[in-house]
Nucleic acid binder design. Structure first.
Lengths: 252, 252
DNA sequence: TCGAATTTGTGCGTATGTATC
DNA sequence: GGATACATACGCACAAATTCG
């Protein structure tokens, strides 16, 4: 009875995936019900369920209890320009405005102490004092990005910019703020990775739990001195990060 | 009867995940068998299987038929340096060697025609002829990265470098190859995003289906002319992308 | 070498809960 | 309220791989 190599649920998943990717099944449209797929493909319920589970884990469809299984929209993600720092003002605001949306954000600063990981990233000792600021960024009032930033008190303590979002230099970028206290940021390093969304993140951004998130560990450097580091997280479905890299000509 | 909040299989998955992440269950060690987990947690077979499936899709464990389910080693993700182009030779090989591993790859070139998406990326007309090359990259003979590259025949057709991996210039980077036919690559743009792994990718790279993959759409530019574009995909669990960005000083 | 026990992967049929319409 | 649909759960059967006496 059992067919050749590939199990039934994989063959069904392949068939349905092809239909979705080819556009034959449009985003937003309802898939046939499980019962209908059983009849249509001549397999029993469990293989159908498992095939749909595969497509769900691939982010192609979503089951809504009581309603049906739907092909997901894959919104063309917005390009979030990175790889260009040094503009005046908030890099986030500039990026969002360029996309024709209105940026806004809320924040919350407090003093903390360096964990092992943060100490490594900032080149300070464990439990050294830091200023931590949590951000929730919005575009057109919709939450789109979370970020937590840390700056060593040894750098910003006692200066007018110790609270990133206060005073005349609130709401501008790290580069400009540091320049105001005589620190010249020369380099930004961004470590990009991705992982499923945590529950708190999903709630804060109005996303389904477990959807794919892009994560950025960003550090601002003034020559050899790390002056700021941040964890940034946003939905991979909604954003792509655009890095523009100049090429140094090959030496002959 | 049934617990209110979370289904049994999720609670079991949470419990086992916590044990794994805390180190209580060491990498390489065997998990209790399905039958043992049933007894231990007082649930029936299906929830146990589903919990293990969840952990498998998270890349934490691996089932070996006839033997058991084993906790996987979780390699600390390697930093894959990006944001620096122009070095001589293959950028991939240089990066892997720097991490102390031995790079290798296989490939397969064929002529195709531009789809709508590729035509946009390369600035050519739909169905214009392209040279397509699929790559499977390995580090120490372990598959780690997939990539498909396209170059317009209007750029490389009739030149010695039309087949990227043939001739004296096989195995070097795009920048160097293009230089050999008088084209000066000035800029590389990388669009980074992430999504769950497709089945074919998971099979090719020996990863669980649905695990998180980093995707890069990379385009090489010679001033206004796109000379190459590629889709690159790798496991987000194993890699992080390091972009180094020079800051242009703010103007006063 | 052989065979029995164990273990996972796969597949089937069914029952119950709950959300949607 | 009733019909439909998906999510979870139970119990069972078989195949293939592994382990071990």
């Amino acid at each position: 009875m059992t067919e050749l190599a590939r199990p039934a649920y994989l063959r069904l998943a392949d068939a349905l995936r092809a239909e979705i990717l080819s556009g034959e099944r449009a985003p937003g449209s309802r898939m046939p019900s499980i019962a209908a797929l059983q009849r249509e493909y001549g397999v029993s319920e469990q293989p159908v369920r498992q095939a749909l589970r595969v497509l769900t884990s691939e982010g192609l469809v979503e089951g809504r209890p009581g309603s049906g299984t739907y092909v997901l929209e894959r919104p063309t993600p917005r390009r979030m320009g990175r790889g260009r720092y040094g503009a005046v003002g908030s890099p986030y605001a500039a990026e969002v405005r360029q996309q024709g949306a209105e940026p806004s954000w809320s924040f919350d600063s407090e003093r903390t102490h360096a964990t092992v990981g943060l100490a490594n990233r900032l080149g300070v000792a464990v439990s050294d004092p830091l200023m931590q600021t949590r951000y929730l960024f919005r575009a057109d009032d919709i939450p789109v990005q979370l970020s937590t930033s840390w700056e060593p008190m040894s750098v910003v303590g006692g200066t007018p910019v110790v609270l990133p979002e206060n005073g005349p230099l609130g709401g501008v970028g790290v580069v400009e703020r540091m320049a105001a206290i005589g620190i010249l940021v020369t380099r930004v390093v961004e470590d990009v990775s991705a992982r499923p969304a945590l529950q708190t993140e999903a709630r804060a951004l109005g996303l389904p739990v477990g959807c794919t998130m892009l994560t950025i560990e960003r550090t601002h450097w003034a020559d050899g001195l790390a002056v700021e580091t941040a964890d940034i997280v946003m939905s991979a479905d909604r954003y792509r990060l655009a890095y523009e890299i100049d090429v140094s000509p090959p030496r002959k």
